[in-house]
Structures are given as structure tokens and as C-alpha cells.
Simulated scan of single mutants.
Amino acid sequence: MCTRFLYIDGENVSKMEVVNSVNSFLELLKPSDIFVGKLYGNRDSVKAYVPFCLANGLTYVETSAISVSGKNITDMKMTVDCIFDVLYSKDSDFTVTLLSKDCDFLPLFYKLKEMGVKAEMPFSALAQITSFEFLSSFTKMEKNYQKTTSGLDAFLKHNGFYSPKNSDCLGNLFSKIKEKTDNFFPDSVIEEHIAIKTKKFNKSIVAIYGENNIHEFKKIKPKDFSFENVVDSLNITDPNEINRLYVSYVSKIFGYVPKNKSLPAIVLNDLAKEFAIA
């Protein structure tokens, strides 16, 4: 008897990929196997295939209800559940399948392998690499993404950094990019990239507040660029104005208009405490 764990990052795979993967997974089950399947995601992102998953014995874990901080709750919830299930599994024989294209799950995958767990992450090329293949794969990565601003831009777009899937877009851009690229790109390239990406937003600030009223804002270096520092430098005290700035920040830097035009209450409250917003 073997327990087969299946975890699906519903916000990072398509309906067709979910359907095909689940069907293939179920076909490989033996009569004596125990199946534990879970689909994770915001209901707006996964509603197209929730009925299919439920009909095939998976549990749906709706994550928007616990997402109040703008962080990637889906990833964290899925990771915590996986580790808990593995550690407290009553069976000594089990496998874990992670369905996601998000490289943020690679640390979980590698930890499972380190623990001796039979794990697979079929949608991740890096998860398929053996120790003997690593060097050639790294060379291929260098070839695909040159250490230039255009190479960095291509990498970040390909990995969903500039998309609605990046729920942590208000933090320090430099540190977030460093983390996402695992220090592959030089600091100078990241700073130049940020200067380019924020150019349109900076022009809008000049147009709204005037050249003579943004001295502190102009002092923000690419390495320190974040939404919090922008609010602080402009000395904004009106919550409505902060929300308008938030929409402009996301649309001009990340390239999409946020579905919710207001900041999460907890974020606005944190700003209120720090900058004495009325």
C-alpha cells in the first residue's frame, strides 16, 4: 500500500494542464494506493476547474480568505500542508507530486528529496536536473539569459514577476529581484533594470506633484525603490491619495491594473502607523 500525495498550485497552471495531469495521475494509481489530492488557489483564479477536481476526489483549499497581507498565501499554505502531511503520514511508503511552474516551490521539492521522499515536480525543468546534469543546465541558463538588462527583463517576465500573480509587488524591488533570480544577475544590472522600469512612473509623479515638490522622491535610488519609500518621500497623508498612487505604481511598473483599486486594510494601517496618516 502506498499513499500518493498530489498538490496543485491552481494559480500557476492552466485548466487543461490540471485536467490532463489529474487524469494521468489517477490512471497510474493501483487499487491498493491511497490518494490524497489538494487544489490550492483564489476562487477567482481556479473556479474553472474546481468542479472537475472535486469530482475526482481532490480537496479544494480556497486561499483568498486567509490572504490579508498581500503575500503569496497560496504558496505558503501549500508548502505548510505538504510538509505537515509528509511528517505525519501513517504510511512509510508514499510519494509527493507538486504541480506548479513556480520556482518558489523548488526549495520544498529539494527538501523533500533531502528527506528521502519520492517527490516529483513535472512542470519544473530545474526539478528534473540530476547532479550530473547541473553544470550543463547552468550553462544553458547563462546562454538563455545573458547578464544584461534585457536578459533580466526576459527572465522576470518568463517567471511571472511582472504579472498579477506577483502578490508581493510593493516591497523593495531590488531585494525581490535578487531573491527571484537567486543572485544570478549583477547588482549593477538590477539597478539599471529598475531605473528603466520605474521611468514611466517617475514621469507621472513629476506631472502630478510638480518638479519643485518632489525633492525627496528624486533622491530614492534604484536599490531603495519600494512603494513604502515612495509614499514616505512624497509625504502623503490621505488614504485615498495613497490608493490612487498604488494603482499608478502597479500599472506603470508592473504593467497591469490591479483588480482591487484599494490597498489591503492591513497594509494601509501599517502605513498609517509609520507615516501618521489620518
Results as ranks from 00 to 15, higher is better:
Cys2Gly: 15
Cys2Pro: 15
Cys2Ser: 14
Gly10Phe: 01
Glu11Ala: 01
Val13Leu: 01
Ser24Gly: 11
Leu28Asp: 14
Leu28Pro: 14
Leu29Asn: 08
Leu29Tyr: 08
Leu29Lys: 06
Ile34His: 14
Ile34Met: 12
Ile34Lys: 13
Phe35Ala: 00
Lys38Ile: 08
Lys38Ala: 11
Tyr40Asn: 01
Arg43Asp: 15
Asp44Ile: 05
Asp44Thr: 08
Pro51Asp: 05
Asn56His: 02
Leu58Gln: 01
Thr59Leu: 12
Tyr60Thr: 06
Tyr60Arg: 00
Glu62Ile: 03
Thr63Tyr: 05
Gly70Thr: 01
Gly70Ser: 04
Ile73Glu: 13
Lys77Ile: 08
Met78Pro: 02
Thr79Tyr: 07
Val80Thr: 07
Asp85Glu: 08
Ser92Asp: 15
Asp93Phe: 09
Asp93Trp: 05
Thr95Ala: 08
Thr95Asn: 11
Thr97Trp: 04
Thr97Val: 09
Asp102Arg: 00
Leu106Glu: 10
Pro107Gln: 05
Tyr110Val: 09
Lys111Met: 13
Leu112His: 07
Met115Trp: 12
Glu120Pro: 09
Pro122Val: 01
Ser124Lys: 05
Ile129His: 08
Phe132Gly: 13
Met141Ile: 14
Glu142Ile: 06
Asn144Ala: 12
Asn144Lys: 12
Tyr145Phe: 02
Lys147Phe: 00
Leu156Phe: 02
Lys157Leu: 02
Gly160Tyr: 06
Tyr162Cys: 04
Ser163Gly: 01
Ser163Tyr: 05
Pro164Ser: 02
Asn166Thr: 04
Asn166Phe: 02
Cys169Pro: 05
Leu173Gly: 05
Phe174Thr: 02
Ser175Asn: 11
Ile177Tyr: 03
Ile177Phe: 00
Lys178Tyr: 04
Thr181Arg: 05
Asp182Ser: 13
Phe184Thr: 02
Phe184Lys: 03
Phe185Val: 05
Asp187Trp: 00
Ser188Arg: 13
Ile194Glu: 02
Lys199Leu: 14
Lys199Met: 10
Lys199Asp: 12
Phe201Tyr: 03
Phe201Trp: 02
Phe201Arg: 01
Lys203Leu: 13
Lys203Ile: 09
Ala207Gln: 12
Ala207Ser: 11
Ile208Gln: 11
Lys219Asn: 15
Asp224Gly: 10
Ser226Lys: 06
Glu228Thr: 11
Val231Gly: 02
Val231Trp: 00
Asp232Leu: 13
Asp232Ile: 11
Leu234Thr: 07
Glu241Gly: 10
Asn243Gln: 09
Asn243Tyr: 03
Asn243Ala: 07
Asn243Ile: 05
Leu245Phe: 00
Val247Thr: 09
Tyr249Gln: 03
Tyr256Asp: 06
Tyr256Lys: 06
Ser262Met: 14
Ile266Asp: 15
Ala272Met: 09
